[in-house]
């Protein structure tokens, strides 16, 4: 085969390839899917570590439940255990659902619809967690004081420093709740942008 013939053939090949701009579509979709899933990787790791922490404390509270000797401390224990065991499961399940939104095998509209449902669910759980965290903080104070120090948090006399500590704890819970919710909000918005780029 002469060089001129090769060049002519190559030129034909180039022309044909220029008319079929489909080769990279699948790869780009796969890369987008990977990027989308990676958006939730760090937060899933943090949630998993948090879940282990919560389960450990939850089990400890359950093991010492008999020390809670009044009806309101028992109620605090129940609230705390329900929060520590239930919330991580709900959050991790919601994260798994949102990560599982399939871009490659579904149409843009279907993927966006799946995402919207999963996002709504995830953000509702986060809102619930923020609201519950203040109640749980009070419940945890009662349970902690009883189990660790055999004191009734709700009856014991407190000096100004103790009250200041409670105030500080409330500020801390408010800050972490706000930070957590904002992180989720940022990540889900960023993931949504990736999906919208596909349109």
């Amino acid at each position: 085969m002469e060089l001129e013939e090769m060049q002519a053939l190559w030129s034909d090949l180039t022309n044909q390839l220029d008319h079929q701009k489909k080769l990279t579509d699948k790869i780009i979709m796969n890369m987008t899917q990977e990027k989308y899933s990676n958006k939730f990787r760090t937060i899933t790791t943090i949630e998993t570590i948090g879940a282990i922490f919560c389960f450990t404390i939850g089990v400890c509270v359950l093991a010492n439940f008999s020390k809670l000797d009044t009806w309101y401390l028992m109620l605090c224990g129940v609230i705390m255990v329900a929060f520590l065991l239930g919330l991580p499961v709900l959050a991790l399940r919601a994260l798994r659902k949102i990560r599982a939104v399939n871009i490659t095998n579904k149409s843009f509209k279907e993927a966006l619809l799946d995402f919207s449902k999963a996002k709504k669910n995830l953000m509702n759980i986060q809102k619930g967690a923020v609201a519950a965290s203040f109640v749980v903080m009070i419940a945890a104070s009662g349970v902690g004081a009883k189990i660790l120090g055999n004191k009734d948090f709700f009856l014991v006399e407190r000096n100004i420093w103790a009250n200041f500590s409670i105030l500080l704890a409330l500020v801390f819970v408010s800050f972490t709740s706000y930070w957590g919710y904002r992180s989720y909000s940022k990540i889900t918005n960023s993931a949504e942008n990736i999906l919208k780029e596909l349109e």
Partner: peptide, 18 residues
């Protein structure tokens, strides 16, 4: 930047293919 990358890749995908 991502959009620009996708545009360039799609424009030159024939080259990569060859």
């Amino acid at each position: 930047k991502e959009q620009e990358f996708v545009r360039i890749i799609k424009q030159h995908e024939g080259v990569i293919f060859k």
